[in-house]
């Protein structure tokens, strides 16, 4: 018992010395990014989201989506509300995205920069995969209580060319993300808030607010609810299954 305590004390002291004296050596931006991903979402899960588009005069338009995600690269979102959008489903497999509209009956390929909901959120925001899958951490710096990661898109098909992500040191959760085009222009800013315990060890933000210099005066908000782990077959994430996503609920 005493020996174990001594070993633990020595190890903890070594770690503390290592981190405090040589932060550049200790900090691995991509490892932090992977940890952010795991803290934000489990490997395989379902969730409900509400999207709110707010116009400059305060008028709102709301959407409710049921989503399932598996692994780092597969995600489906089904619109539950409003009635005009009900039954629409979007699928993402890596960089491939499709939209299924019940009347049209066949899935149409869509692109990450389009938006099926209007407002500031685009398709890649709605069907976001793991950050570490799409981005490489090229720079990292520290402030008092946060890390600042500079992330570069791994391929040209990713919606944003680069991100500046502020990560809370204590929780390893993102607080602010600035999204840039290849030209360096700021496209939008995402702000996570309202840390909530979703159960099963999942503690993460329940609200995301975004605005964009391209949509002056407009704001879009995403709220999360019932984020729970769920086992899913790979076949759920196929075009043939898009008309049947409702049955997963």
């Amino acid at each position: 018992m005493t020996i174990n305590r001594s070993i633990s004390l020595v190890l903890a002291t070594c770690c503390a010395l290592l981190f405090s004296q040589s932060p550049a050596l200790a900090l691995d931006g991509n490892e932090i990014l992977r940890q952010v991903d795991r803290n934000m979402q489990p490997e395989s899960y379902e969730m409900y989201r509400k999207l709110i588009n707010i116009e400059p005069d305060g008028k709102k338009k709301e959407f409710v989506l049921y989503s399932v995600k598996k692994g780092s690269n597969k995600m489906v979102a089904l619109f539950l509300d409003p009635a005009s959008e009900k039954g629409r489903a979007t699928l993402r497999l890596d960089d491939n995205m499709w939209l299924y509209i019940p009347n049209v009956g066949k899935p149409l390929r869509i692109t990450s920069l389009q938006s099926v909901v209007g407002g500031v959120f685009n398709n890649s925001d709605l069907l976001r995969l793991d950050y570490s899958l799409e981005y490489d951490a090229t720079e990292i710096s520290e402030e008092d209580d946060s890390y600042l990661l500079t992330l570069k898109a791994r391929t040209s098909s990713v919606a944003y060319d680069s991100l500046k992500m502020t990560v809370d040191k204590k929780t390893l959760l993102p607080t602010t993300i600035e999204c840039f085009a290849a030209s360096g222009m700021l496209i939008k800013t995402l702000r996570y808030s309202k840390i909530q315990d979703f159960g099963d060890g999942m503690v993460r933000p329940a609200q995301l607010e975004t605005d964009s210099p391209l949509y002056k005066g407009y704001t879009s908000v995403m709220l999360w609810a019932k984020l729970t782990k769920k086992e899913l077959d790979d076949e759920v994430f196929t075009l043939n299954y898009l008309s049947k996503v409702e049955e997963l609920r």
């Binding site: 409900y48 509400k50 709110i52 707010i54 005069d57 305060g58 008028k59 709102k60 409710v64 049921y66 539950l80 509300d81 609200q207 908000v221 709220l223 999360w224 609810a225 019932k226 409702e246 609920r249």
Partner: peptide, 22 residues
């Protein structure tokens, strides 16, 4: 026209529970 107040966002899931008949 609705106006936006501070921190007014809420998400009541009861209206979206799954029903056998939709």
């Amino acid at each position: 026209i609705k106006t936006r107040g501070a921190d007014e966002f809420s998400f009541d899931m009861t209206a979206f529970e799954k029903k056998a008949l939709e």
